[in-house]
């Protein structure tokens, strides 16, 4: 049985029409399983999601390893609908299932010297073989957040969508979702969480720092060098109805804007 027991969440986004399960699970960027949108759905079946552990190290009281089944029971699983905005200027509305990452981080007991948290994705070149045949990216996938961003209640440790466990192509068995940042900040299929004192090197920054910044907050007034971020295409609508205005912080400014007070978001894109 893949159904998850969930509770309602006050942090869930309202007033949006959900993107269909079919589109959420068949229009994916997960380059380890192919660079075209429909390929992760075809290829990610080979990802072994059990047994699965998440190891925690770096600036913590003591390193720990969590089993996925223990993580699933660690806190009540909440239904959280979030807008999802890809840096490629398309967007979805997704009913995720999980609990705030902050709950997990507290249990990791990071030291006060920990300023950032890094997430590393599962990678085995025999399994994620499309990652090497179709790209020149250095794996494993690495992403990171500043400590206050990781502790923001909106940042979700995610185990499911539409009330069910995550399909592999959506980052099974556990991923991060950061709804006010471009989708690539939300690392999938996490095996390692590392607390560090310096901004961690992330995959897309390493690929092209000019186009993908560490912060990557959704921001309609800062263009991607190759396209405008003022508007986006909502997935699943007919071609003439897709275009819509992009919201600052993807519409989550009330909960997150204060973290960036005094920061030049053009410089820290």
């Amino acid at each position: 049985d893949t159904k998850l027991q969930t509770v309602k969440s006050p942090l869930s986004t309202t007033g949006e029409q959900l993107t269909s399960l079919e589109d959420i699970t068949h229009y994916n960027n997960y380059y380890e399983f192919g660079v075209e949108k429909d390929m992760p759905a075809k290829n990610a079946g080979v990802l072994p999601t059990r047994p699965w552990t998440v190891s925690v190290d770096g600036l913590v009281k003591k390193p720990k390893t969590y089993d996925i089944d223990a993580l699933l029971k660690f806190r009540p699983l909440e239904d959280r609908v979030y807008r999802h905005r890809c840096v490629e200027a398309w967007s979805m509305v997704i009913p995720w299932v999980g609990y705030s990452l902050s709950e997990f981080i507290k249990d990791c007991e990071p030291l006060s010297t920990a300023k950032y948290v890094q997430f590393l994705t599962f990678y085995d070149k025999k399994i994620d073989k499309w990652g090497t045949s179709e790209t020149s990216i250095f794996w494993p996938y690495s992403e990171g957040l500043r400590m206050d961003e990781a502790m923001n209640p909106l940042t979700l440790l995610t185990f499911g969508l539409y009330g069910d466990v995550l399909p592999n192509q959506n980052g099974a068995p556990v991923r991060i979702v950061v709804p006010w940042k471009y989708g690539f900040k939300s690392a999938k299929s996490i095996v390692k969480v590392r607390f560090v004192d310096k901004q961690p090197e992330t995959t897309w920054q390493q690929q092209n720092a000019h186009e993908y910044g560490f912060y990557s907050n959704v921001n309609p007034s800062v263009d991607h060098p190759r396209w405008s971020q003022k508007t986006e295409r909502r997935i699943g609508l007919p071609f003439y109805a897709q275009r819509r205005t992009t919201l600052m912080f993807n519409g989550y400014g009330e909960q997150v804007a204060s973290m960036y007070n005094g920061m030049d978001l053009r410089r820290y894109y």
Binding site: Y27, P238, F239
Partner: peptide
């Protein structure tokens, strides 16, 4: 596909 809205999840990008 455009007439029947069967151009997939992101018809604009598909076209």
């Amino acid at each position: 596909g455009a007439v029947n809205n069967t151009l997939g999840a992101d018809p604009t990008a598909h076209i």
